[in-house]
Design a protein around this nucleic acid. Structure first.
Lengths: 213, 213, 213, 213
DNA sequence: CATGAATGAGACTTCATTCAT
DNA sequence: GATGAATGAAGTCTCATTCAT
């Protein structure tokens, strides 16, 4: 029917991938179509055969990055450990990405700026929501599993989504703070401190849930 | 002998203020000197009488914003409350800024992008550190006060800085997540959840410190 | 596959040529990229498709001018004349360029100013040296030929390069003086006076070389 | 009548002097009024109390420089030497200025460019002529003296002005060439070669004048 | 007299986008 | 489908000059 559809999408991905690399290094605004074309081994004009505008390209690149992140972290959860260790393991894997590849924080920063700033991006709010969906789900699964196993206190179940949201927000926050003023604290230590407090709460079977202090 | 008298610092502040407004709307890169000049009711060339470059202007604007934030939140802490409530009150005040003035998150996003991306900003790493210094100190003070009053468990003292760092990182993270995908969760609820967990830990006088789970 | 075909080097030459014309009229600094673009019948931005900067353009334009000069004067030497006449003929040809085309002196003045003033041009000192190389060689050839034919005294051979250097420096100097205060002397008469003195020395077979007076 | 006329002229000289220094370093176009004002320890606006425009300032500065040069070289001629040595001594003194103070060549280059290029400067052609007048006269005096003493051949008298013109043009030319491609030849050696040839001609009492070769 | 704040034109340069080939 | 030459708007920054004080 439509010939070479696959090729076309493949090409889009290649370009978006090359673009992503550059976005990570310099941010969206500071990356020019010229550079992207060169990095993708394609002509400047051809970019526009695949994307309608720079914004469109940015959008696709971001979406692709989100997918990548999902796969990368999703696959890291070894399911044979007890829930607390599994949670810690998952979080460590996420942080490891930040630590091992500075790009990710840069892209994250660029994305935040993009979504928070650019009104046109608000139309894609759903993308933003999806962005963390898988990660959130992975965390919630572990939490519910812990409840089922009697390791986490029952109240955890209804707090699960909130906990996941907070955890992911925290991870982005600490990553940004860390890279902003390179290392006046130890990233992993801080993350462990967070996890310590969290897990202590979850495993404290004695207390009543929801009591505000 | 004495020409048109102008308070130079006052003028710098005015320009930086106008710039800040635009930075909050569009980010640093997307804001042009022209726009700033127009917003400040001044000619384009005059900007350079007060700032050596756009980067310089950004830098001053950011520093000014930091100072503003400090004053705003610093004054909000009613010191006659017991430490837990005081902490909650302080954090609420901080979040209130996010909620009441979208600008602040935008500026925060812009700053993160700037520092994480722009290599030249790394020279101002100290600024980045200072940025949170006062806030950190305010939190630590409350924590230590709580220990002194026997309300927080003793181990809190040595964890105080880590707790403060995490709290501030979390607040930025949750703010960014919140504005990125406008309100698929309630911001204040999430923050309260965070505080609940934190305070429960701190007020749990029975446990031994530092035991990792 | 093959888009609008343009001979890139040809285009560069066209632009440089248009620029040269303006440089000759106004000097390097006083000539704007806008003017060059207009003169070349091209858009301002397109200039930068061919040259990296204004300095680069100046550099190429100067190099092109040098080549032009070389060809123009190099072809003028009729080799069947006896050496003294050949030298006079060559020099006359050089002066003729000055006289017939005021541009050349202007460009020379601009080049001198550029090289003497702009520290960045010192990196291209080799260009400056090359600039006169061919002309120097042409003069030296005639001198050595004259020695071989027994018309110039033998000592001429070892002085040849110095004589060539002086002759070329003189020509530039007299050209500049001439155009600076338009014609309170006759250019060609002065040049002939210089040649008279020079040739009289070279053809004076009786004297010992190197005796300083 | 008109009070403080002296002060005013003195002030003009001070400013022009400061300007001259900068012109020598950077050329006319590249020197800003701001810099001149700062160097002169005066306010930018005040410059315009003394000069109508930048061009006016340039003009006065150049005129002042000419005067300076005159005084400097004029006083250097020790009149008790025999004419050939006196000529060499005078020329050496002139070259010494080039060698000891790079500024002079830079200013010379700037002046050449200015006069050759700027049409408005042509109105001051007389200044250009005057520029070399004293130097020319000093050279002619020596030549005529030499003729009177029977050391230079009689024909020298009628050639005297042409010789002076050529000598001065040569000196500028060799100075420019020298500074353009820093020292691929020895400046003083070249000048001496020029003088050798010149003096040999002048002291060759046997030959008939004006015979063209 | 003197100041220096203010201006606005214009400098160089970059870049997303278009279009003839 | 692919190219890359061309554009023109917009960006940052400089500077001679004016003018209220």
């Amino acid at each position: 029917m439509s010939p070479r559809v696959v090729d076309r999408d493949q090409r889009k991905r290649e370009i978006a991938l090359a673009a992503l690399e550059l976005f990570a290094q310099n941010g969206f605004e500071a990356t020019s179509i010229s550079e992207i074309a060169q990095a993708a081994g394609i002509s400047k004009g051809s970019i526009y055969l695949y994307f309608n505008s720079k914004e469109d390209l940015i959008f696709h690149a971001v979406a692709m990055w989100v997918d990548q992140m999902m796969e990368q972290t999703g696959s890291e959860a070894p399911s044979d450990l007890p829930p607390p260790q599994r949670l810690r393991s998952l979080v460590h894997a996420m942080v490891e990405i930040f630590v091992s590849d500075e790009r990710s924080v840069r892209i994250a920063a660029a994305i935040f700026q993009l979504f928070v700033t650019n009104p046109r991006m608000l139309e894609h709010r759903d993308l933003a929501r999806e962005l963390f969906q898988d990660a959130r789900k992975a965390i919630i699964d572990i939490l519910l599993d812990g409840v089922a196993q009697g390791i986490f206190r029952p109240g955890t179940a209804q707090e699960a989504e909130g906990i996941a949201i907070n955890l992911l927000a925290y991870l982005d926050g600490i990553g940004l703070h860390y890279y902003m003023s390179r290392s006046y604290f130890d990233l992993m230590d801080q993350v462990d401190l967070y996890l310590d407090h969290l897990l202590r709460n979850l495993t404290d079977l004695s207390r009543r849930p929801g009591a505000q202090i």
